[in-house]
Simulated assay, not measured.
Amino acid sequence: MKNLITTASFLVLITLVLELRSGELPDFGLSNYPTAVHGTQPLVMKGGDPYIRALMRTITASEANSKSPYSLIYGGQYISNLKRHPELCVPIVAGPNVGQCTTAAGRYQFINTTWYDKAQQYHPQPSGFLFWKSYSFEPQYQDAVVHAWLSDQQAWGMNLSEKLQQGKVDEVLRRLSGTWTSLGYGIEDNVMTKHLPRIYRQMLKEELAKAV
């Protein structure tokens, strides 16, 4: 029995080495890998289109793969005050924009100018008066703004939910990649990019199950 265990362990080790050398991560029968990533945790917001909700979780998997994505800022640090966008410009240390800085923050890595632009259009509960509006960056509002934005056909030139219902996940990711470059087809792919269609399908199963 001991020899059998040793042989099995050796085969697993060899498999791991070969997979890593080929650039692929082994599954070992875990069919949901690599969907078990931090960024795919459930949304805070309630309700909404399950196809869009699954897309939002997929975006997070590549943009803010963290146990606390709503408070994440570029570089891996976290903020505690989400009353507004943090507007912290953190130096970019890798990629095509190295040497610049970015204010990317939250579950969807909004830069401050994009957040204020989209919040003006989609934020459900801005505070203030007339031109002196304030837009909470708390989790439920990050979700609400992105859900409304992704549901806006005019914003994307297509009905994203309809495309997703037709199974055209790659087409949708391509359309969004100009905004979220880690989705692929651009200049800032990451280790999660190639797994996103499969992650989307898993997230959709979860979201459709909740919607029943």
Rank of each mutant, 00 (worst) to 15 (best):
M1E: 13
M1A: 14
N3H: 10
L4S: 14
T7L: 15
T7G: 11
A8Y: 08
F10L: 15
T15S: 13
L16R: 06
L16C: 11
V17Y: 01
L20Q: 08
P26T: 06
P26D: 05
P26L: 07
D27S: 15
F28C: 04
F28G: 04
Y33P: 00
Y33H: 12
Y33D: 05
P34R: 09
A36L: 13
H38W: 12
P42M: 11
P42Q: 10
V44Q: 09
M45G: 11
K46C: 03
Y51A: 02
I52R: 04
I52T: 08
L55T: 04
T58C: 05
I59L: 07
T60H: 07
T60R: 13
S68R: 14
P69C: 05
Y70N: 00
Y70W: 10
Y70K: 01
Y74M: 10
G75Y: 01
G75I: 05
G76I: 04
Y78P: 02
I79W: 03
K83D: 15
P86H: 13
C89Y: 06
P91M: 09
V93C: 00
V93E: 12
A94L: 05
A94T: 11
G95E: 08
N97Y: 13
G99L: 08
Q100R: 12
T102E: 07
A105D: 07
A105G: 10
G106Y: 09
G106D: 06
R107T: 04
R107F: 03
Q109T: 04
T113R: 04
T113Q: 02
T113M: 01
D117G: 12
K118R: 15
H123R: 03
P124F: 02
P126R: 02
S127M: 06
G128Q: 09
F129H: 15
L130H: 14
F131H: 12
S136D: 12
F137A: 01
E138M: 10
Q140Y: 06
Q140T: 09
Q140E: 14
Q140G: 00
Q140F: 05
Y141G: 01
Q142H: 13
D143H: 06
W149F: 14
S151V: 04
Q154S: 14
Q154W: 01
W156S: 07
N159W: 05
S161H: 03
S161V: 06
K163N: 12
Q166N: 14
Q166G: 08
G167S: 06
G167R: 05
G167D: 07
K168I: 01
V169P: 00
E171W: 03
L173Y: 00
L173N: 03
R174M: 14
R174H: 13
R174V: 08
R175Y: 00
T181G: 02
S182H: 08
S182W: 00
L183M: 11
G184M: 07
G184P: 01
G184W: 01
I187R: 14
I187L: 15
D189I: 01
N190T: 08
M192D: 02
L196T: 05
L196P: 02
P197I: 00
R198S: 13
R201A: 11
Q202S: 10
M203N: 15
M203W: 00
L204G: 08
L204E: 09
K205L: 15
E207G: 05
E207V: 01
A209I: 08
K210P: 01
